[in-house]
Each structure stands twice: as C-alpha cells, then as structure tokens.
Design a protein around this nucleic acid. Sequence first.
RNA 1: GGCCCCGUGGUGUAGCCUGGUUUAACACGCCACCCUGUCAAGGUGGAGAUCGUCGGUUCAAAUCCGAUCGGGGUCGCCA
Length: 602
Amino acid sequence: MSTERTACGAPRAADAGSEVTVFGWVDRRRDHGNLIFLDLRDHSGILQVVISPQTAPAAHAAAHGVRLEYVLRVRGKLQPRTAQNVNTRIDTGEVELHAEECTVLSVAATPPFPVNEETDVEEGLRLRHRYLDLRRPRLQRNLRRRATFIAKLRTVMTEMGFTEIETPMMIRATPEGARDYLVPSRLQHGSFYALPQSPQLYKQLCMVAGLDRYFQVARCMRDEDLRADRQPEFTQLDIEMSFVDEEDVFAVLERAISTAWTASGFRGAITTPFPRLTWHEAMDRYGVDKPDVRFAMELCDLTETVRGCGFRVFNDAVSSGGVVKGITVTGGADLTRSDIEGRLTDVVRTFKARGLAYLWRRETGWVGGIAKFFSAAELEAIGEATGASVGDAVLMVADRPSVVAAALGALRNHVARERSLAEPDEMAMVWVTEFPMFERDEETGEVTPLHHPFTMVHSEDVDLLESEPLSIRSRAYDIVLNGREIGSGSIRITDPAIQRRVFAAMGIDEDAAQRKFGFLLEAFQYGVPPHGGFAAGVERLVMEGLGEANIRDVIAFPKNQQAQEPMTGAPAMVEEEQLRDLGLSLSLRPVAPAPPRAVPPE
RNA sequence: GGCCCCGUGGUGUAGCCUGGUUUAACACGCCACCCUGUCAAGGUGGAGAUCGUCGGUUCAAAUCCGAUCGGGGUCGCCA
C-alpha cells in the first residue's frame, strides 16, 4: 500500500485540517440514514469517521453497506469537533475524519463473539477464533506489554554484561524431572530428540566454555498437566553466571526484574532488594514454600500448648509425633459453623487433613464445639500463643507436620482471598533460600532431589550427605511473588567428589551417572568455574504485572487444559507415510482423534 | 487418575433449588425499514435456541435422577 498511512489512534486536535488516509476495522457504526458515523479501529486506537451523502456520495454509498469488522481504507480531512461533540473516552476524541473516499478492503462475516467489547466469552470459542480474541483490546495490551517487558529484560541483561545464547531445541532426553516431549529421528530410526524442559545443562556448559555470563529468553516444554499458571510450552528468562555466589545472582535478578517491571508499566512497584526467607522459615510461618507475604495470618505452633489436653484428636496427633498448628482469622467471629465445617474444611481435606478444629473468641470467652475439652488455663495459653483477640477465630489442624503445613498453608491463602486481605497492587517479592537438598518420595520411599542433581550442598551440611540426606540444605533458591513461584535457581556443584556423593545419596551409581550426565561430568574435568544461575517464568511475571489470573491471557496462542490448540487442531494424527519415514508404527488407535477443525489447506 | 464448578438462540445471562400459565425471558449482535451529529446513537418490525448428548422418573422435564461428552479450576504431577 503505497498510500501514506495515519494510525487510527494518532490524530489530535493539532492535526485538524490535515488530509489523511487511515486503515482499520469497523469497531462500531452509527448509520443515521444520511449521516453515517464509523469508528475505525487499528492497533493504536479508534478514530471516528463521518460520512456525509452531500460531500461524499460515493463514500456514503459504500459506507452504507459496511458492517462490524469490515476492513476499510478511508481518505479524508481531519476536522476539529465542536466543544459539545468532543468524545473524552477516546484519545482522538477532539477530532474526526470527514471522509472523501471510503473503500472496503475486506468484508467480514458476523464474528462468533463480540470483538468490540470485553464481554466474557467461553474460552473454547475464544481459542478457536484466537485471531478475533487477540483483536480485542485486553489481549492486544497484554501482548504488547509482554513484548515490552521481554525487550527491556534483554536490554538490562545485556547492559549487565550477559551474552544471549541460543541453545538447541532438539536435545537428548533426560529421564529426571518433567515428562519430555519427544521428536522422532528420521535418520536414526528408534532414536528420539527431546524438546528442552529448560536449557539447564547447556547453560552450565556455557560456563565451562568461559562465556562467563549467559542469558536466554528460552522456550521450554514440559509434558505435564496444565494449570491456571502452567502451559506445556512457556518462556523463561534463563541465566547462568560464573564465579558467583547467591548474592551475585540475587542482585542480577532484582535489577533485571525491577527495571523491566517499571519500564513495562506493570502494576504496583517492585522494591529491591527482595526480602529473604529460608525454606524452613517459610514452612514454619506460612506452611508453603511459596508464601504470599502480603498479609500476616501466620501459622502458629500449638503443639506444646495442647500437649496433654483433653481433646483426643489433638492429643493423639501430638503423642504420635504429629503437630498442632493454627491460624488466627482476625474478625473471624463472623465465620459460621457451616462456613468452617463446609468450605473451609473442604480446603484442608484436599491436603489430606482429616478435619479442621476451630474456636471463636467472644466477649463471653472461648466458644466452639471443642472448647469444652480445654481447661481455662489451656484456653488462656492458646489465646496467648495465637494472639487471638475478642472477635477473632482460630482454625487448627492436627496431623503429621507435612499435612498440617500444607493444609493450613492452603487454608491461609484461601481465607485471605475470601476476605480480600491482600492489597491488590502490592507486589511482594521474596527470595526463599536454603531449600532441602532431597525429599522422600511418599510413594516409592526414594530420596529424590528437590531441585536438580547439580545443586550445591550447603557448606555446613556436606558431612550429612551419607548419614542424614533428608536434613541437608541446598544452595537452591526461589523467587516468590504474591504467593506464586516465579522462578528458581541454585549454585551448582563443580567439585567432582561432592557430585559423586550427591549422586550416591540419590541412588545413582557411577555407571548411571556416566550414562545420564557423562558429557557434563567430562566437561567439568577440563576446568570448570564455580557457577550458579536462575530461571524466571516470564508468563508468570507478566500475569502478575498485568493483573491477569490466567496464563493463557498473556500468551498469543495458548493450549487448552487438554494441551490442544483448538484453532489449528494440534495435536493431530499424521499421514502413514510420515510415520513410515520415521520408522514408527502406532500400537494404539488414538481414542479421540478428531480435532475440532482441520487446518484448511492453503 | 481423584475432587469441584460450568454447559439455555451468534454472544452474555435469567429461568432450574420449589417439574405444569414460557408459545423458553432479557441485553447485545444479526436482517429490513425510518432517521443530518451520533459516539453503548435512536425508533419500528423481524429472524434466530426443543435448553451439550443419551437414558430414566413422571400424566408432564430446561427444571428431578443416572451416565456420557465438552470447557474451566484444583489435588496428584511439574528434577
């Protein structure tokens, strides 16, 4: 299009009198029979076009047949609006375009859902017509802000001396961690590439290579079930640095995120440095390893307070090695018995707690079904320990420590949401440090690494590797924002002796280690700098920054909960010939093959 | 795999609990006509859903029950 183009959102009062040509979609039309008003929309905004049958009969005739979402070219003169006709709701509201020529570039069928307003539409329909959903202002804004954020991250990282390096997308499968997406090899039948869950090993090899400071805006793929903040493919700001300890990594992340945050116009303010919290502290005080610290309502340990009390549930839990903890709901006197025994108990049951005990503190004293099991002194002590005042409620769980923590941690978040305890625009970043090195798999009983097997052991705990692996702290750390895990990283093991002992603790013998990670161990023999890094989830940051509750709303073409992409119908079956080329044959008939819609052949 | 929520014209909702005056209502959109200043334009008229699907209960089902499909949330899972 050789014509000079003026963006719809550009014209201002000062542009009145100029001759312009605009292109865009019809956002609204108001046809008065003679005079026709069209709101023309493009990426930049909306401009009112006026078409009069007297001054532009041909344009008027054309405009009469125009419908919503038609694509138009309009040439004319920008005119100022009279004072009473100014529209303050749009940026171009002080002017309007008096059409001289109006050309329909493309007609449009009636859209399956409104494009010109922000009504909620069923998500399946939105995904199926994603190009229309993306045409709407909210997603336009989200994608632009996301782009700004990423661009700024790149700038800051580069300024800090990092080199962006692209690592391969077709890599060797790693048995650890998330399920891999596999790509069959045509040249080596029976062999498969995997799509990267993260560039972890490559970035460490970059350190061996002496690249010193690596970063990448990396696409990652994990074949796991989806959540509101989890997609099978997502983007990480991936970082690795040589000759550093935790504080160096923290400083880089704090600067990168806070700078890009501000530059992208994200909500709230990010203040640095981010507060630090050890994993143990987080679990004790919040019950979760990703605490939302915008509100208090911290967990309070009542184990000793209730030891030997007359309430059997508590007593049994304590005497069998369990714990009793509670949270104090300020003003919780308004919680009814059915609130607590209904939906609040459902919350803790999800996390395997058998029930939720509760006490109200009223003017008249402690009330609640279990109050009668406690002596006055015990109730006094509970009040002391929980800090509950008159008008508050105390909600308690007794069980194994892990169950109590998970149940009350979830309950704390639930109650906070119900009662709007968090300031919506507060951005509470926190580093959670000193994660345990290992955990015991509840099902298999095996010791498995919490982070990955190259995470360095806390120097004070090295001697416990053989005797007490489960109590070892690692040098792994997470960033948590408003109760959401934003990313994680660690200082890595570069000492072969320690690496061997860590593998041993995990039950990986020398052979297995060589088989799985031999290339990395070999590389480390040639002079490896001490190094560490981090990976931050870009979508999760953008979600928080934009106040979006769902990751799909910050991704252009996301997958649904079944990991399908309803617009193109991926995944789909392939031709027999493609399988033959790859040396594959299917042993199972796919159960539900039909994609919602086939890709139209071009 | 478990649990929870949702499924009514093109879109968003009401009706469902307490089955029957509903020929299934409302708003937006759509179609036609009228209309010189609107900007969520206005007016008049019109088309459009047998209530996701299947089965059951009942004289009677959008409404009650069961199953199933689809969408979402969540637990498990995500080194």
